[in-house]
Design a binder for these strands. Structure first.
Lengths: 337, 337
DNA sequence: GCTTCCAGTGGGAGCGCTCCCAACCTCCGA
DNA sequence: TCGGAGGTTGGGAGCGCTCCCACTGGAAGC
């Protein structure tokens, strides 16, 4: 099996020649388009096999003006935001849907200036067929770029203060309301909220849902005790809360991380969960099950979020006009409330 | 600002014409290559600005035979493996290094047959400039594909039973040894190992390190109590261990997830950590700090792993001959041991 | 004065594919 | 018998860029 000539990949022309047909016919056979006789089609297939031909995606991209890739852009001021297992779930969902459309996933972390610059260039150069954007801060520098670009952009979650043309979101308000109602139904009357970043729509919406539920129950909402969706911020917020309102008996945390932090603080303070203080989280990530006690939490379908974003993008790329989507959430009752 | 003509992106030819130079000069100016007079260089830059020109990456890729992308392939029999925060860290590190080389990251989850097929095609079609492969199971179907491909492949971790030409790994044996030595130094004499999958090199190497340390200390290693790197498997392994060896006083877990599971089982069994049983984990992920008590664990530089993989790939793409890398690990002492 | 050299320049041939279109062939109804 | 209709076929023109190369003219060297 000598391979002396450092032979390149065979090209379509070579396949055509080898099969005794023209390049056009070979191309059609390859993309199983019509207007190819059975005999030639098979001849091409044989040649492809014999030569080990694989189409060159770049050349195809240039000719079709389609890159065959979709970008997932995750924005945030530092890369650690991406460590949130949330994104891994989104990626798993998106990948599944992208696979169906035979698109590749380009992952862009726009966490540094350099990263943002590259995203900007991607957007301007049409380096992908479309973009899934997770940029939820109010002042995110990518938002204006997303407006300008001429490629389809699907948002994951809605940014504060703007409703994009295409987005997939989860029902944050409804989930938070259900969580809070659950606490109230368990007889809690002094229910506080450990908020996530209030410059994100998710953070605000969850507080809104909490507030709605308490008002509807004739109880007084607490002012937002703000954190940043991390475990330490949850622990800190809980500590502050205990200091100001030692009689709190229910806590709605903006996500599981913060709920886990709250649990830690409560344990340290000698408060029993759920007996003294009931805690509800949001997300239903792995941490919710591992927590001690296991967290009652609002399940949000994160993989579905990714999947639907990708599907929406695919349909946009195919020239359709999808409508925004809000995915349902539901409460998962465990032991913490 | 009428934009009636649905004008395409301007091309390099248009820039050249607008600047009153030839395409060649424009190209050279753009890539700031030599052999362009100052005046024309500036004229081109002006034209670029006025026309809002952005080079078409696909055309460039076709001409240069470089895609401008590196693929990160994560293999596993089901997508949930990717939920491990480990990968997020790898991605963060890889992204940083790739940014420096101005390469994009293509993320491929080879968890379904479909996914593996697409990876195979990517490998054969040179759809990227290189591949970072995380496929560590002994019988991983991607391993033979990686052998065949004509594009550079850097492994993250070593697969069982084979030493790839290029890889970055962490010092699993050394870390496990240090962790076990720590337990011994604390006076533990009945130290068991909660292993990860023994069909991965990491799982084996960590057990080997544990074994070495105990033998060196003149103690008897326990037979491997196998899990699969997940929290529940750690809990189960710990339960089995307690049943067979109620007198165990030290546990080395193959990773933090399993250690967290062990903690849960021990708490349920009424064993105090670290008083009755000391526990050491491996990874030093977020869960280690959140665990109760916080885990003493072996820190492995996961972002660095990703970064070095990307760097190695970049140097391969640039025609250099990097050497494999093994990154150091070190023990982080917290309360669990 | 004459070569020699080289920065600067633009023409043109690709890179490997898709797709339009004209040419062709066969078969059928009128 | 003849004129389509409709399925096949291959030529050729791109897609937008890079890069080789031949050519120019002025500066440097002798």
């Amino acid at each position: 099996m000598a391979e002396d000539p450092p032979r390149r990949q065979p090209t379509l022309d070579e396949v055509a020649e080898h099969a005794g047909v023209s390049r056009s016919v070979a191309s059609r056979a390859l993309n199983n388009a019509p207007h190819v006789s059975r005999a030639k089609r098979e001849a091409v297939q044989r040649a492809v096999r014999q030569l080990g031909y694989v189409p060159n995606p770049t050349a195809r991209a240039l000719a079709t003006r389609q890159t065959g890739a979709a970008a997932l852009v995750v924005s945030g001021e530092d890369p650690s935001i991406f460590a949130d297992p949330f994104f891994a779930q989104v990626i798993v969902g998106a990948t599944a849907a992208l696979e169906d459309a035979d698109l590749h996933l380009m992952l862009c972390l726009a966490a540094s200036d350099r990263g943002r610059k590259r995203v900007a260039e991607l957007l301007r150069s049409r380096g992908a067929d479309g973009v899934m954007l997770m940029a939820l801060r109010e002042d995110d520098p990518l938002l204006p770029l997303a407006e300008e670009t001429r490629m389809p952009v699907v948002f994951g979650g809605r940014p504060v203060g703007a409703t994009p043309r295409w987005y997939v979101d989860v029902d944050n308000v409804g989930g938070a309301r259900e969580a809070t109602e659950h606490l109230v139904a368990r007889g809690r009357t002094r229910v506080a909220a450990l908020c996530g970043r209030l410059d994100t729509e998710a953070g605000r919406a969850r507080y809104r849902g909490y507030r709605d539920a308490l008002l509807a129950a004739g109880l007084d909402p607490f002012p937002p005790q703000e954190g940043d969706f991390t475990e330490p911020s949850g622990a800190a917020a809980m500590a502050a809360l205990l200091a100001n309102h030692p009689d709190v008996d229910g806590v709605f945390a903006a996500n599981d991380n913060m709920a886990a932090g709250a649990l830690r603080t409560l344990r340290k303070a000698g408060r029993l969960v759920p007996d003294d203080v009931a805690v509800v989280g949001f997300d239903d990530l792995a941490v919710a099950q591992i927590a001690d006690p296991p967290l009652t939490t609002v399940h949000q379908p994160i993989q579905a979020l990714g999947r639907e974003m990708a599907r929406m993008l695919v349909s946009l790329v195919n020239g359709q006009e999808p409508t925004p989507l809000i995915l349902p959430t539901h409460l998962v009752v465990r032991s913490s409330a």
